[in-house]
């Protein structure tokens, strides 16, 4: 950096000028070694221009700096703004919700969609949400983690938290019976994976046992189901085409933890008879 203009500062200015020049040379070498393509070109050109600027007298340097500022401003306006999406994927907002059309296309954040949908509809689920004590006895804990605790209750917790109303209907098929219906139910549109949705249902778990904490949920729905087991991905299937205002929905899930959501009418007419 440069110092002031006084007599005492003249020698100082030369020294600090040399420091600045040395720093620019190091910057130039770093740019040449690390960067590539257009970036290398820009870094090299600007470094050389900056180096040459340091050789000018102060008044000329001010003018050159104005040129640099203009250049950097143009670079910002014409390059940064246009390339932002390439650096960090942006979402085009075409609805007034967190869930956007491109999320549906890419099958991202399906639970955002469910939270929006369920707010307006009552839901029936097949399982009562029982306390952890009814699943996780000492004997079962000794044998390892008893997955049924999560499988039977977490979807139910989600429905109870976000639906307009949630009721238990023991007439509905349980996981094993739903397994027989998968061929038909998996024809519904798939809106994405359920791992994250279920991982965060720990927020809704008031059982106050170690397995109700985030650590266990994260372990089960990611480390265990995704990393260790091949069947670690499970999906959400939602039949939206005949959902109308005021309809009651039915939520079923199979042993592989795929969720199927449909209107009660569709269930009664098209699914129930085929069990």
């Amino acid at each position: 950096m440069m110092a002031g203009n006084d007599e005492k500062g003249v020698a100082k200015r030369s020294f600090s000028n040399y420091i600045s020049m040395a720093a620019i040379i190091i910057l130039l070498l770093a740019a040449l070694l690390i960067s590539s393509g257009k970036t290398r070109l820009v870094f090299t050109a600007v470094s050389i221009a900056a180096f040459l600027t340091l050789l000018l007298r102060e008044q000329r340097r001010k003018q050159a700096l104005s040129g640099f500022l203009l250049l950097f401003l143009m670079l910002s306006v014409f390059y940064n703004v246009q390339n932002l999406d390439r650096i960090n994927p942006m979402t085009e907002v075409n609805t007034q919700t967190l869930y956007q059309e491109e999320d549906y296309v890419n099958q991202y954040y399906p639970d955002s969609f469910l939270r929006l949908l369920l707010k307006e509809h009552a839901v029936k689920i097949p399982y009562e949400i029982k306390h952890a004590d009814e699943y996780l006895t000492d004997e079962r804990r000794e044998q390892g983690f008893y997955a049924r605790y999560y499988k039977e209750t977490n979807y139910g917790r989600f429905m109870r938290a976000y639906a307009k109303d949630c009721s238990i209907s023991t007439d509905l098929p349980d996981m094993k019976e739903t397994d027989q219906l998968v061929g038909q139910l998996s024809a519904f549109p798939c809106i994405g994976r359920a791992n994250d949705m279920l991982r965060y249902t720990f927020l809704l778990n008031e059982d106050n046992v170690q397995e109700s904490a985030y650590f266990w949920y994260s372990w089960y729905y990611y480390s265990y189901m995704v990393d260790e087991r091949a069947e670690g991905k499970f999906f959400l299937y939602v039949r939206t085409e005949d959902i109308k205002e005021g309809d009651t929905l039915v939520a079923l899930w199979d042993s592989a933890q795929n969720l199927y959501l449909m209107t009660e009418q569709y269930y009664e007419n098209e699914v129930r008879g085929y069990e």
Partner: peptide, 15 residues
Amino acid sequence: GYFGFIVLILLLLLP
């Protein structure tokens, strides 16, 4: 982006 680089260059040119 080029922010870090631009800031460095300006710092080296400014007194």
